[in-house]
Design a protein around this nucleic acid. Sequence first.
DNA 1: CCTTCTTACTAACTCGCGTTAGGAGGGAAC
DNA 2: GTTCCCTCCTAACGCGAGTTAGTAAGAAGG
Lengths: 352, 352
Amino acid sequence: MSTSDARVRRPRTEGDGRARRGPTMGDVAERAGVSRTTVSFVLNDRADAGIPDETRRRVIDAAAALGYRPNAGARALAARRSDWYGIVTEIVTAPFAVDVIKGAQDRALEQGKFLLIASSESEVATEAAGIEKLLEQRIEGLLYAATWHRAVHVPDIVREVPAVLVNCFDADGSLPAVVPDEVGGGRRATQRLLDAGHTRIGLVTLDPAIPASVGRRQGYEEALDAAGIPVDTSLVVAGDATADGGYSAASELLDRADRPTAIFCGNDRMAMGAYDAIKERGLTIPGDVAVVGFDNQELIAAYLRPRLTTVALPFQEMGARGVDMLAALTAGQSIGTEIVTIDCPLLERSSV
Amino acid sequence: MSTSDARVRRPRTEGDGRARRGPTMGDVAERAGVSRTTVSFVLNDRADAGIPDETRRRVIDAAAALGYRPNAGARALAARRSDWYGIVTEIVTAPFAVDVIKGAQDRALEQGKFLLIASSESEVATEAAGIEKLLEQRIEGLLYAATWHRAVHVPDIVREVPAVLVNCFDADGSLPAVVPDEVGGGRRATQRLLDAGHTRIGLVTLDPAIPASVGRRQGYEEALDAAGIPVDTSLVVAGDATADGGYSAASELLDRADRPTAIFCGNDRMAMGAYDAIKERGLTIPGDVAVVGFDNQELIAAYLRPRLTTVALPFQEMGARGVDMLAALTAGQSIGTEIVTIDCPLLERSSV
DNA sequence: CCTTCTTACTAACTCGCGTTAGGAGGGAAC
DNA sequence: GTTCCCTCCTAACGCGAGTTAGTAAGAAGG
C-alpha cells in the first residue's frame, strides 16, 4: 500500500464517523467560499487585512450557521499565547478564597483571559502538582493566594512564570504582592467606636505573631493616639482566634470593675464569642457594650443578633488587582517586587 | 527574497531570542539521541512499542535534565482528547459549592483529568459565557452544579457535551443527576432525637415548595411513623430559612403550653435563630430543648454554643460521584437519565 | 497600452505533539 | 546463503489554528 493510498482523508460530511468533532475553520472557509486564512483574519478582527464587509459577513454567517467554536488549545499553540492565567489557592479550607477567585476571574474575563483554578488544600504535594498542571496548560501568569495574610515561602516552581502573591507576601521579598491594609482597617474600626462616643475601648487580639494582629492593633493605637486617648494596655487582651477564645477574652474585659463600653475583636469568630459573654451577663449590644469585628465572615456577621459591624477584607479587590499586576508583568513592564495594599472597608450594621 | 531565505529557523540554543519557550519533545529527542516518536512512546508509557530500558532511561534523563514539560494544548490537539472536565457553579454566592469542586477535582485528578472551573454567579449571561469558554477548551464532560437542591432548566448549550447535574436535577428529566438524600437525612435527624428519648419533636420547615423541605419533612414523618408516634401537624411550623425565621418559628413552638422537648430545624441558619429563642426563655440546650439542624454550615454548626448536631449535605461525595458518572458517559456507557442520591450523614455534636 | 498601486485574497509554513506504517539490523531456521 | 521473524526505532502525516510572503485583478496614472 503506497503512502498516498494510506492517507485517506476522512470526509467531513454529516453522517461522518462515530466521534463527531466540531466544525473547524476549514469548514467555515469552505462554506463561505474563501480560504482558511481569510476566516482567521475575519474572526480575529485583523483590521490590517482589508477584508471588505461583504466577505466578512459571509464568513461570519457561515461560522454562525455551522456553530463554529474556536479550539482554544489549537489557537494557543499557533498563537504562542494562551490567554490563560492560573490561580492556586486553598479553596475548601478557606471560605473566602472564592472571593479572590471571583474578583480575579471577573477582571481576567474583562481582559479576554480565562482563569484556571487549582486548589491546593494546604498539602504541599497537591499544591505542587496543581501548579505543574497549570504550567502544562502554558498559563501566562500565576496568582498565588493564601487563606490568611502572612509571609509565605513559595515553591520554586512558582518562579518559572510571572507570578503575583495575593493575601500574602514572599518571605524572600522577591515577588510582587497584594495584601489587605490591616492598619487602615484597625484604624477605621476603632474610629467608628470613637465616633460613637466610646473612650474605653477593649481590644481582643489575635496571635500577635501574624501580620493581621500586628496591623490591626497598630491601627487601633493610631486611632486612639489621633483622638488623644492614651493606650491602656490592660484593655488589650489576647484571644485564640476562635469563638471560645473571644468568649474568654471578652469575659476578662467585662468582669473588670471599669469594664470597657466597647470591644474591638480581632476577628468575627471572636466577636461571636464576645456576644455570648456579653449576653450572659445580661448586658445589651450595643447599649451597654458596642462590638466591632474584623473579616466580615458573612455567616457570622450578618446573622448574629444584633448584626455585627465589622471590617471587610477586600478579597475580590485583591484578586482583581492581582490580575492587573499580572497583566502588567506579562506585558513586559517591570513592576518589581512592590507590595500593594488594598483598603479594608468598614461595614456598619447594628452592633455599635 | 526567496521562500527558502525567508524561512529562518530560529536556533533553539541558549541565549535564544527574547520570548523563551520551554523545551519541546524535539529537544528531548535530540539530547537523548533518538527520534521524537521514541520520546513520545516513552513519555506516554506505550508498552506495545518495545522500547528497551536503556533507551527509556536515556529519554527520561534527558527530559528531566531539560526540565521538559508537556504542552497540554498541543497534546489535546494531537490526541483528540483533552483530559479536561469542566464544572459550572455559583461559587461565591454559595460557600459550599467549593466542596463540590473539591470532591470533583480530587476524583478527576485520580483519573488523570483536570477540572476547569467556571463560576456563574447566578447571572445567566455569565453562566453561558462560562460554558462557552469551557467548550472552547474542548472539555470532555461538564458538571453543572446548583447551590441548593432544586429542579433546573439548563441552558441548551449544556447538551452539546456529556453532562451531569449535581445538587439539582433537570426539569425536563433528560439529564443524569446526583442529589442529596434529603429523606434519609430527615429520617436520621429525627431518629437521633427519638433515640435520645424525645417524643414531642417540633419541626421547623423551609419553603414547602423546595425538594429539601419536602424530603426532610418526609424523613421526619417516616421516622415518627416507624417509632409508632403519630405526626402532630401543629408541631410543624414554617420558617423563612433565615436566623430570624428560625427565631420566630421556634418561639411559636416554645410558647405553647405543651412545648416540644426537641426541635428539628430545616437548616442551620434557622437553628441559629432557634438557639436565641431558647436561650432567651432561660431554657438550656440540650437539657430543656434539644436541637438538630441540617446543612452543616461549618461556621454556624461548629461555633454555636453548644455545638450544633446537624445533618451534613454530602457535597464532596456528590462532586466525586458526578465525575464518576461523567467518566462512564464519556466512555460511551449509557447511564441514561438516572438520578443518584447520596447519603446525608448525621454529625453528632452537643445539642442533643 | 504599459506601469504602478491598491485591494482582496491565498499558499504554505509553523506551533508541539500522537500515531501509523514501515524499515534497518541481527539472529534463527531452512 | 536465503528467508523469515523480532526487536527497536523513525519518517511522515495530521490535529486546528495564526501568520508571513506573495499573487491575481482591477484602478489609477502616465
